[in-house]
Amino acid sequence: MASVPFHYVDLRTFCYATEDEKRVEGALRRFLPEAFEIERETSEGYHGDRIVVLSARVEKADDVRHVLTELSELDDIDEVMEELDDRVDDNCSFFLRLDKQAAFGGRSRRGQGITLRAKVEAYPAKREKAVENARSVLEDVRADA
């Protein structure tokens, strides 16, 4: 994978009062390069419970490659590629949800808990071009896996 047609990748998850923050952080780190900085923001739920929002923005090409390599381990990466028309919006952003519990166990699987948003490079900045670029990089990732 020579070039990476993504400006950045945002990963975000919530740690609820019933969860262990270190474990939730570990799940998020499943997709991040080693020792990558995670931002924390504390919020309050509807019933006054504490919610910690953990997030990271990956911008360097090598770091984005790392995230994409982790995505290549998805069992249904082919299905994700088929859904790209629905997963890329008019602002050239690619969206995917990942299973927080599986990530904590060291596996990559689609599900609930971790939100991935990636800004796809597209010149001109049109949705169709972004879908084409995202498909191309996911095909490369799949081939390298």
Rank of each mutant, 00 (worst) to 15 (best):
S3W: 08
V4G: 03
P5M: 09
P5T: 12
D10N: 10
L11D: 02
L11W: 01
L11A: 03
T13S: 11
T13C: 15
T13H: 03
T13I: 05
F14Q: 12
F14V: 02
C15N: 08
Y16V: 11
D20K: 08
D20Y: 08
D20W: 08
E21C: 07
K22Q: 13
R23H: 13
V24R: 00
R29C: 11
R30N: 09
P33C: 01
E34L: 07
F36C: 00
E37K: 12
I38A: 00
I38H: 02
E39C: 10
R40A: 14
R40I: 12
R40Q: 12
R40C: 12
T42S: 09
Y46M: 15
D49L: 14
D49S: 15
I51Q: 03
V52Y: 03
V52F: 07
V52W: 02
V53G: 00
V53R: 00
L54S: 07
L54K: 02
S55V: 03
A56D: 00
A56N: 00
R57F: 14
E59I: 09
K60A: 15
K60E: 11
K60T: 03
D62T: 04
D62P: 02
R65K: 09
L68H: 05
L71K: 00
L71I: 03
L71T: 07
L74Y: 01
D78I: 13
M81N: 04
L84K: 11
D85V: 14
D85N: 12
V88E: 07
N91E: 10
N91Q: 09
C92D: 09
C92Q: 05
F95M: 00
L96S: 06
D99M: 01
D99V: 07
D99N: 06
A102Q: 13
A102H: 08
F104G: 09
G106T: 08
R107V: 04
R109G: 01
R109F: 00
R109A: 10
R110M: 04
G111M: 04
G113F: 02
I114H: 03
T115R: 14
T115S: 11
R117C: 04
A122R: 04
A122C: 02
A122V: 12
Y123S: 14
A125P: 06
R127V: 13
K129L: 10
A130I: 02
A134H: 10
R135P: 06
S136V: 00
A143N: 14
D144G: 01
A145V: 04
A145N: 13
A145C: 07
